[in-house]
């Protein structure tokens, strides 16, 4: 406890913050990337995240097993995704409007059902210590890596490979890029998009379970400060590429740690500005990679915002 690391604490905290804070961003953005690759936008993932946090916490508390909580969060998330997907399959329904409705519904239901679970303490998800080689407590603390983070990292690689090299990935991309082409191939776009949205919802639910079952590790009505919405923006930032989603989630997590740690080493003026760092970063990268001449690379053709 009495090790003073001076300014070395800053990179350490950014790494630690990236590992601790990024997981919800990662899961929601992977889910959203999958959904958007099929040609739909699900803005409701913030609501799914909050409901996942609540249902995960509640089930973990009631059964005593955090993993059952994660499973419940995934199932609830899939259900939310399914509802969104089915409604959007009806003719002349706007996916963005449905998404906003689903977001508010998800939060409302979570607050309603979550009331009895604010006080109880549910078991936490386990973490793996990768800091055993160090004597410095700060390093050990930063390298406590939750299992869900590792699963998320694995999923990012898996999704990237799936979209690039498998038949399922190709099908998804065709549906996302051109409904007409998909129909000509004998595919059923509405069904495929509904499935993609449901899987995306399940991912977001797991992201919520991470919030309530590991970090910060409790359920209350203010548990999410917009992570679900930011993750949707993060997908565009990552150009619909799962590997880039992983990088972007790490970046956002690390940038979020900047404000508190700078205050802790004595840079205390203007902390509101440091808190805005992730958003400034987003703006900067989007401007730097934009082009007036061509459309966004990697954007699925059927997406309502790019059409």
């Amino acid at each position: 406890m009495d090790t003073d690391l001076g300014y070395w604490i800053i990179p350490l905290a950014i790494i630690g913050g990236a590992i601790r804070v990024s997981t919800p961003f990662l899961f929601v953005s992977l889910g959203e990337a999958l959904t958007e690759r099929s040609g739909r936008i699900n803005l409701g993932l913030e609501g799914t995240l909050v409901f996942g946090a609540m249902s995960g916490y509640a089930v973990a508390y009631l059964t005593g097993s955090p993993w059952l909580g994660v499973l419940a969060a995934a199932l609830c998330g899939a259900l939310f995704g399914l509802v969104h997907g089915v409604i959007c399959s009806l003719p002349r329904v706007n996916d963005i409007a449905i998404g906003i409705a689903m977001m508010i519904l998800g939060m409302g239901l979570a607050f309603y059902f979550g009331k009895p679970f604010v006080q109880p303490v549910a078991p936490d998800l386990p973490a793996i210590s990768f800091g055993w080689w160090s004597d410095i407590p700060q390093v050990r603390a930063a390298l406590e890596v939750n299992v869900l983070f590792l699963i998320g990292a694995g999923l990012a690689v898996l999704l990237w490979w799936m979209l690039r090299a498998t038949r399922v990935g190709l099908t998804l991309r065709v549906v996302g890029d051109s409904t007409d082409a998909a129909r000509a191939m004998g595919l059923r776009p509405a069904l495929i998009r509904t499935c993609a949205t449901a899987v995306g919802g399940a991912f977001a639910g797991v992201g919520g379970a991470y919030l309530s079952l590991y970090y910060p590790g409790s359920w209350n009505e203010g548990i999410s400060s917009g992570q679900g919405l930011m993750a949707v923006a993060l997908v565009i930032f990552a150009r619909w590429n799962p590997l880039a989603c992983f990088g972007a989630a790490l970046l956002f997590g690390g940038a979020g740690a900047l404000g508190p740690v700078l205050q802790s080493v004595g840079v205390s003026e203007g902390y509101y500005l440091f808190f805005a760092a992730p958003y400034v970063l987003t703006l900067g990268v989007l401007i730097a990679t934009s082009s007036p001449k061509r459309a966004m690379t990697g954007a699925p053709g059927e997406l309502s915002i790019t059409k």
């Binding site: 009495d2 601790r20 700060q138 400060s225 902390y271």
Partner: peptide, 27 residues
């Protein structure tokens, strides 16, 4: 050592602030 989070209720930021304090040697 004081760390301001800027809001009355921000779970993740409060957790990060607490970790930053622990990292800075506050016990």
């Amino acid at each position: 050592q004081v760390i301001f989070t800027g809001e009355w209720s921000l779970a993740v930021k409060e957790a990060e602030a607490t970790n930053a304090l622990a990292d800075a040697g506050c016990d």
